[in-house]
Amino acid sequence: MAPVVQLKDIHKIYDSGEVQVHAVRGVTLELHKGEFMAVMGASGSGKSTLMNTLGCLDRPTRGTYLLDGVDVSGLDRNQLADLRNAKLGFVFQGFNLLSRTTALENVELPMLYGTGHGTARQIRERALHCLDIVGLSQRADHFPSQLSGGQQQRVAIARALANEPQILLADEPTGNLDSKTSVEIMGVFQKLNDAGITIVMVTHELDIAHFCKRNLIMRDGRVVSDIAVADRSLAEAEMQKLHAAEAQAKLTD
């Protein structure tokens, strides 16, 4: 089967006047359907640039990027937008939900752009279905300010799912969450991955990366390590451990 993502010798050079910043220096990478990859690295390692390239938010200076067989390099701003709308889902560190807008309307957002999303009624039903997947259908009418961080991130995941994307891109999705909620969110990702969705996430937490199937480590714009995770953590088991630890703490008190 053809890979979903094919990067060939990707370079990205930022030209800010006098100084040239070579953020990514030749990354070659393949990603198949159903993969769950964590991209790790120190700040300035080029992982964010790589994510922006994968997310079609930015075009590489050199190299080719085939997304689902389509060469992305030659597309203009609007074509990239349509591609993002049709094939990619985004989850951000800061959730990035529209404030004073209900969870449901937030999830509807991607379907209001692009074409072929059906009638207002179908969009609404699809949005409710996505909220159901992340277990928040009861909170459809809540505003982000009425939801906890974990719940907000789940709304953001539901929004990313709205267009039935080829890949879900998550940029430090647990960066703003406590460890227990992080495990919860990783549980949602693992569930989605089990259902066949390809996920790429950036993280700098090793234990979070351990929930993924594949770890890619970057340094100075190059891939220095690309390994399959041998005995990855399962969110369900980790959750039980956490509960046990909590119970323990209370007992010993």
Partner: peptide, 12 residues
């Protein structure tokens, strides 16, 4: 930014 990321054109 969110709107553009999820597929809004500049025109939208």
């Amino acid at each position: 930014g969110i709107r553009l990321a999820v597929g809004a054109h500049g025109r939208d």
